[in-house]
């Protein structure tokens, strides 16, 4: 409590924050310009300057973090990320790292904005046609089987050990089989994603359904509530945090499944197809542009689920403590 109070007090450095932010930004802007002016042939002094700018930004982040005292803020990770990208750019251009090994962020961004005509169909094919339907189907199937297991203890005792075992297996390996069964188009990708997302949902839902305590269940029984009512009024709401956990894990798994399954055969569109063909042609900027799209899609999907979780499980302790 006292920690929070100390953080809220207007400290003397508050006025200086924009000014102290401007310093490292300016420093890195100059350094990036310098690197671009003489790519691959910068003097040793340059790297000393880079180290100094890095130290400056680190010290700034240190001061901000000390003032925050453990409270959450977007500022430190933002600075950390910007510095990371600036160092990446400087290392690639100034250090003359081969384009094949790692293109600089500027080249990736240029490619990203220049090739929307390729990226959009790839996005539609991989994310909207393959990952999303598979994610929804797999989650639904896992949930349905979990409910069935919940009704029958015998089924639950039989399925749970197997599900635990299978969830540790490299399920993605079934991709070539699914491509053989369902063809090159999105159907086979949906099948892979369903197989990958089914087990996390099954395990998490089963764990969530047993999260309600004995007292609450006894209370429901004393109300004369049957299995359906108890499920709707008590056990499903209690299971929601677990279900959302599975939905979030599955969001990433679905994208991975859809992209990797495309390595085994696709129509001539899709993010995985583009990645594997552009690598063959050493078009690394296009590959990275696809990865940026995948990363944005993945984190926005994840973020949307987090917001939904907050709205649906606002009562959960993890959202009430702060």
């Amino acid at each position: 409590m006292s920690a929070n109070l100390a953080g809220i007090q207007p400290a003397s450095g508050d006025v200086g924050l924009p000014a102290s932010l401007a310093m490292p930004i300016l420093a890195f802007a100059i350094l990036i310009g310098w690197a671009h002016a003489s790519p691959g042939a910068v003097p040793a002094l340059f790297w000393v300057a880079v180290l100094a700018a890095w130290a400056l930004s680190w010290w700034l982040n240190h001061r901000i973090a000390e003032r925050l005292r453990g409270r959450r803020s977007l500022l430190p990770p933002l600075i950390f990320g910007l510095v990371l990208f600036a160092l990446w750019e400087i290392a690639c251009v100034g250090g003359g790292i081969p384009f094949v090994l790692m293109p600089p962020p500027s080249a990736i961004l240029t490619k990203l904005f220049a090739s929307g005509g390729t990226l959009l169909p790839d996005f539609v094919q991989t994310v909207l046609k393959s990952a999303l339907p598979g994610w929804a189907l797999g989650g639904f199937a896992g949930f349905a089987v979990a409910l069935a297991c919940d009704r029958s203890p015998f089924l639950r005792r039989g399925v749970l050990p197997i599900a635990d075992f299978v969830s540790a297996l490299p399920i993605i390996g079934i991709a070539p089989i699914m491509v053989m069964w369902f063809g090159f188009d999105w159907q086979s990708k949906v099948a892979v994603v369903v197989a990958m997302t089914f087990f996390p949902m099954l395990i998490n839902t089963l764990a969530g359904l047993s999260a309600a305590g004995h007292q609450e269940r006894d209370l429901m029984r004393s109300y004369g509530a049957d299995w359906g009512t108890t499920l709707l009024r008590l056990r499903l709401p209690m299971a929601l945090p677990f279900i959302f956990n599975a939905l979030k894990i599955n969001a990433t798994l679905a994208l991975i499944g859809a992209i990797v399954a495309e390595f085994f055969g696709t129509p001539t569109v899709g993010m995985g197809f583009r990645i594997s063909t552009e690598i063959g042609r050493m078009g690394l900027d296009m590959v990275w542009a696809e990865i940026v799209v995948a990363a944005l899609a993945g984190s926005m999907f994840y973020g949307a689920l987090t917001l939904l979780e907050r709205a649906a499980t606002f009562w959960h302790p993890s959202f009430r403590t702060r």
Partner: peptide, 28 residues
């Protein structure tokens, strides 16, 4: 405290992106 404040959000974000898609790039 600096690492906790600045690194942890990036660690979490790094797992929301489909890392495995980078696998072929790293190898090639």
């Amino acid at each position: 405290r600096v690492l906790a404040a600045s690194l942890v959000p990036w660690l979490v974000a790094s797992q929301t992106i489909p890392i495995l898609a980078i696998a072929p790039i790293v190898v090639v």
